[in-house]
C-alpha cells in the first residue's frame, strides 16, 4: 500500500456487520469516529478514547477490540461487527440482548453496546465460561449505572440459554 499522507482523505473499505462499506478517512481518524461520523453507525459509543472504559468495543475479525485505539485505516479489509449487527432480525433481539433486557442489565445503556460485543464474542468462543471468567472478561468495561450485578446475571443467563439452544 502506498504511503497515505496526513491531511488527506483516503478511501477505507471493510465489511460492517456482513455488508461492504466504504468511506473517506485521514490516516489519523479513529475507527470509532469513522464508524459514527462517516458511516453513521452510532451504536458504538465513545467514553474515554484511551482504552479504559470499553464503551467503544467492537469485534474486529471476530475478537473484541477498542475502536478508539484503532485507526480507521487499520481496519481496511477487516471484518467489523458492531452492536447494530447483533439482533437476528428487525424486531427481534439476540439471546444475549434479550437476557440483558430481562435482567435489567442496562440503565443509561451507554456502556451496553461495548459490553454486548465483548460478551457476544466471548460466549461464542467459550460457551462453558465460568462465572469467574465472565466477570474477569467484564472487567474490561466500566459501567457506572448498574453496579455490574444485573450484568453478571444477564451474562450467566445468556450463557445457560445459549448452551441449551446453541443456535438461538
Amino acid at each position: 500500500m502506498p504511503r497515505l499522507s496526513a491531511g488527506q482523505r483516503h478511501r477505507v473499505s471493510f465489511s460492517l456487520n456482513g455488508r461492504p462499506v466504504a468511506g473517506e478517512a485521514e490516516p489519523r481518524l479513529l475507527l470509532s469516529d469513522f464508524l459514527r461520523g462517516v458511516l453513521g453507525a452510532t451504536g458504538t459509543h465513545v467514553g474515554c478514547e484511551h482504552g479504559v472504559c470499553g464503551a467503544c468495543t467492537v469485534q474486529i475479525d471476530g475478537v473484541p477490540a477498542r475502536a478508539c485505539l484503532t485507526l480507521a485505516v487499520q481496519a481496511e479489509g477487516a471484518d467489523i461487527r458492531t452492536v447494530e449487527g447483533l439482533a437476528p432480525a428487525p424486531g427481534r433481539l439476540s439471546v444475549l440482548q434479550e437476557s440483558f433486557r430481562e435482567h435489567h442489565a442496562l440503565q443509561c445503556g451507554f456502556c451496553t453496546p461495548g459490553i454486548l460485543m465483548s460478551l457476544d464474542a466471548f460466549l461464542r468462543q467459550r460457551p462453558d465460561a465460568s462465572e469467574a471468567e465472565l466477570r474477569y472478561m467484564l472487567s474490561g468495561h466500566l459501567c457506572r449505572c448498574t453496579g455490574y450485578v444485573p450484568i453478571m446475571r444477564a451474562a450467566l443467563a445468556a450463557r445457560d440459554r445459549l448452551r441449551e439452544e446453541p443456535n438461538a
Binding site: 500500500m1 504511503r3 499522507s5 496526513a6 490516516p27 489519523r28 479513529l30 469516529d33 484511551h50 485505516v73
Partner: peptide, 13 residues
C-alpha cells in the same frame, strides 16, 4: 482528544 496528523504506511514486507 484526537491525534495530530501523521502519514500512514501499511508495510507488506
Amino acid at each position: 482528544m484526537k491525534p495530530a496528523p501523521f502519514d500512514y504506511v501499511r508495510a507488506s514486507d
